[in-house]
Design a protein around this nucleic acid. Sequence first.
DNA 1: ACGGGTTAGTATACCGCTTTACTAAGATGA
DNA 2: TCATCTTAGTAAAGCGGTATACTAACCCGT
Lengths: 349, 349
Amino acid sequence: MRAPAKLKDVAARAGVSPAAVSRFLNGSISLPAATIERIEAAIAFFDYRPNAHARRLSLGRSDTIALVVPEIGNPFFAELAAAAERAAAAEGLGIMLFATENRLERELEYLSRLGRSDVDALLFVTNHADEDGRLAAAIGHAAQVVLLDEDVPGTGVSKVFADNVEGGRLAARALIEAGHRRLFLAGGPPALMSARERAEGFRAAAREAGLPEDSVEALAGDYTVAQGRRAAEAMLASPVGPTAVFAASDQTMLGLLEVFRARGIAVPDEVSIVTFDDVVPLAFFDPAISAIRQSIGEMGRIGVQRVIAGMKGGAAAEVIRLPIEFVPRASVAAPRDSTQAKKPTRRRP
Amino acid sequence: MRAPAKLKDVAARAGVSPAAVSRFLNGSISLPAATIERIEAAIAFFDYRPNAHARRLSLGRSDTIALVVPEIGNPFFAELAAAAERAAAAEGLGIMLFATENRLERELEYLSRLGRSDVDALLFVTNHADEDGRLAAAIGHAAQVVLLDEDVPGTGVSKVFADNVEGGRLAARALIEAGHRRLFLAGGPPALMSARERAEGFRAAAREAGLPEDSVEALAGDYTVAQGRRAAEAMLASPVGPTAVFAASDQTMLGLLEVFRARGIAVPDEVSIVTFDDVVPLAFFDPAISAIRQSIGEMGRIGVQRVIAGMKGGAAAEVIRLPIEFVPRASVAAPRDSTQAKKPTRRRP
DNA sequence: ACGGGTTAGTATACCGCTTTACTAAGATGA
DNA sequence: TCATCTTAGTAAAGCGGTATACTAACCCGT
């Protein structure tokens, strides 16, 4: 286990200068075949691999980007990480992974790694409101930060979001088309853009379908299982008796399901469900749960793309909206109590 | 947006030498309060942050470790990544994440990053057999590689595995105690240590319970949903009619469930299920699925620990077995066809 | 008044690669 | 035969820190 060979050693053995070897390796020189052969032989002889630290110091970049998310274990972020890693690897970039637990100090700390040129760029996901603007200030207008999934208002960087409004709208429409007229929205934190937009789309669709303003009852929450439980209770206690519910996230839906089951409420016979995200294996649930799916993979891919564009310089900040899709499964059916429901349309006789 | 300040600038403004500032920042010097104040003022003035590349080149390390897994989106590896990241962050280390898609070339490539001192150490998970020994050769005896979850035979590095034998045993015991006598094992790839060990434990428990050798029927597979489907078909087609099945992974279990549902086979009334891993939200399934749980978090944590020990030098390679646990839920019940089953023990009258 | 110890630092040689600008030798052309 | 061009490289200055070894000034005790 000798010390690893360095450029100098290779050069010496090939009978050329270190500069020649370096330039050869980086393709910035053209050499006669004989010399190339000698260099390659020397490289093979030493099993030479350029030292990454030296290279990075000299180049002033690391070919590494950071992905900063609230928690890695959450399947949503895991999938995001998977997509980002794939896209980055394809471009020869490495991904450093950081979890913030959604805490501001940790977010700021990871943001500061940019300043230390620890990483070249940052793919950043936060999930809480930036109350005092510190986060926005830290993000500033760095061309090397791209915001994913959730906004940090007041920042001029590139952003990639799902089309949340459309997501909310699709959910409401699916429910309304099945015949529901009293809807429940187990929504996200109103401080977050994503939650506001989804609620907005949901209500808009209700309005567009001619439902009265009070046809959608809502309870805001925090995207957790616990929120789902609370929402289920609230919904069941509601005097107007909603017959369908839109869950802000898969976690929320899990909470709903738990309470419905405990109370013996049948899905979709007694209540219909549409969830948001589609990152949990919903197809295997009983019943399989219908979902609004955002393309997380796309978000990761495009995020990496934007980040690269930013690194290459130039590219103006841009806000990108990703299309969203309704995945019909078995958790939506006509309301049982159909007194005020339109007759469900059956496609096949 | 001026060029970031460097050590030299800070030193000049504080009226000391760069060495003094460096040593001050690294705590390797003691200085009078007045000097410290000047240095700190200068640092604040410039918002100075040491350049990570320079530091790493000088120090010869990056305080970064790589986590190499087959796929990040898989909840098992996602949870592993989450735990490893947490443990690493607590020690001031960063995590670089790499997905190999279980392909040898990519594994070798990431392994080679160690040689480039791109990262200080590697947390490595593979999921395929090392047929020609190339993987083992690449891993060699580097004190900076720790193998997680699955073995690569012929390597002398530290390893952290679940107690698979005990896992298999617990699964069989749960089924047998419920009264089952004809068991089906939807196992993993026989080329993998984990699969062999689980099968071994499973059969051992059957033997220990006095069941005949042919009481467990098995079909090997590859831990996928597709495997689960195949296993279900095989099981249903079996002339001996197993009444319970042990799935090699949550994915496998998903495949089983799909087929059982399509065929109208009730769980646990007609067939009992125990799965392995417990990374999918099994508690929310209907019925909730009983599982053998390995402590993935612990695996990540301990892996990081071992890697750090290895970096500090000294620490001999070690193979660690992590305890495993049976999580009883609703998918195991007495066999309906109880002709040859013992009477199920009911705890509460 | 002098040797010795402490305090408060400094000088300098790396770490290993990249890159810009330059040159020596041979080939080409007039 | 001399000027010019091409070929095949090279020398050396960074990149921005860290660490080792050293020194200058001051204080103390005798």
